[in-house]
Design a protein around this nucleic acid. Structure first.
Lengths: 224, 224
DNA sequence: CGATTATTCAAGTGTTCGATTGATTAATGG
DNA sequence: CCATTAATCAATCGAACACTTGAATAATCG
């Protein structure tokens, strides 16, 4: 009767969100959208999906009200429906990290030991970044930097890093960051910089993590 | 290459959790497990599913490491793998509530106006419950009360309420609670109590909500 | 207006999922 | 050691999903 259908209806609604995050490509799209708004084409390119496929996945995310679409000229720009969606994605990631040992194993395999900082070291690094005591380098694509970045950060997308090394000082320490803990852009950047004789380390925080700590970010006019 | 497979692998892991919460019956099972450990049969009965079906859903939740199974004699008891899982479920629910207008509509349709308290009233009610200034009545099944309940609460399962009305004082105000905002047990209990001349109101907090506020709960020895 | 480009739609196909059914395993108790 | 009970397994079938392909739509610009 009434109770049973109430219950059923509510769980069906919750499952709409669940279904939205039940697919690896959709999670990747969400991850990208946490960096800032993007067109369908941009998302498709970044995630390595076909445009049609990307469009369909975005529609599923839209049906779950996790993202919004806005037509701007010839392009459709998708963005998170709410900052809360990013928080939810991060909660999901945190849960996965602590429950699924596989994730740590995957990351460890990739990092091959070099990258892992002690928690204490990491806190000290964050603090120095926050106080702008080091050169902070944002190696994400320019539109993501434009959408939001850590205050004081310099933007040199990884692709252009090799060509713009002269923009960086040799004496001071460089801290590179990208999208977050699972993004490899900053790892690559540090590898390159160190090879060229710079003093560089990676910070595994991205803008979402930075923001989640309550620290301010720059950019993202977001003119609704 | 390596980067692509790292990314893919991580998103696949996250999707394991997503898939686990992409099905209404699994969400209901999680909801029940947030109240405390339960056998397969108990969960099946409570959720209105077949035992075989319930067992299969529980195995999917287990594969995502959200729940743990322990054989105790002839029964297998399932429980949340971690309190963090309950928090995650609540985060999902909060997101759904704020993003999906449908949920509010469903609840409003069921409550038909009577039940909705003003936020201020609600805070005051919680405070009075916390200070044990009212009779607090737990109308959930006894095993859930045993697993954890609000300090000072009296347990009278809804099914036995009619037969045990004499256990309740007529003068003092009664606050009934059950599993949480979408559970109808307390609504039914209040309906019955008011019809019998008691002064009773419903509190839409359950133990998980209570706990999430940082308030203590009683019970749940949990002898691992 | 016609060409171009970004996006979506529609159809097709192979795969996975969800629930049911009946058989099987595992622990308990007479 | 057989009967009982709880839970799982295995097989099945229809529904839902994921991705591809090619066509359709919609905005822009020469």
């Amino acid at each position: 009767m009434a109770e049973a259908s109430l219950k059923k209806a509510v769980y069906e609604q919750l499952a709409r969100i669940g279904k939205a995050v039940a697919s690896p490509p959709r999670l990747e799209l969400l991850d990208l959208l946490c960096q800032g708004p993007r067109t369908v084409e941009g998302l498709a390119r970044e995630a390595g999906l076909s445009v049609a496929n990307t469009s369909q996945h975005l529609q599923i995310l839209h049906a779950a009200r996790l993202v919004e679409a806005r037509k701007e000229g010839l392009f459709v720009t998708y963005r998170l429906a709410d900052q809360q969606v990013c928080e939810f994605y991060r909660t999901l990631r945190t849960l996965a990290e602590s429950r699924l040992a596989e994730i740590e194993a995957i990351v460890r395999m990739f990092n091959s030991g070099r990258e892992s900082l002690e928690p204490v070291e990491k806190q000290a690094l964050l603090e120095r970044v926050r106080r702008a005591e080091v050169i902070v380098l944002d190696v994400r694509p320019p539109e993501e930097y434009r959408a939001a970045h850590i205050p004081g950060a310099v933007s040199i997308p990884l692709k252009e890093l090799k060509a713009h090394l002269s923009m960086l000082p040799r004496g001071r320490e460089i801290v590179a960051y990208c999208r977050g803990p699972y993004c490899v852009l900053a790892v690559e950047a540090v590898k390159l910089l160190c090879a060229k004789g710079f003093r560089a380390v990676r910070m595994d925080y991205g803008v979402p993590e930075w923001r989640a700590e309550g620290w301010p970010v720059t950019g993202g006019e977001d003119p609704r």
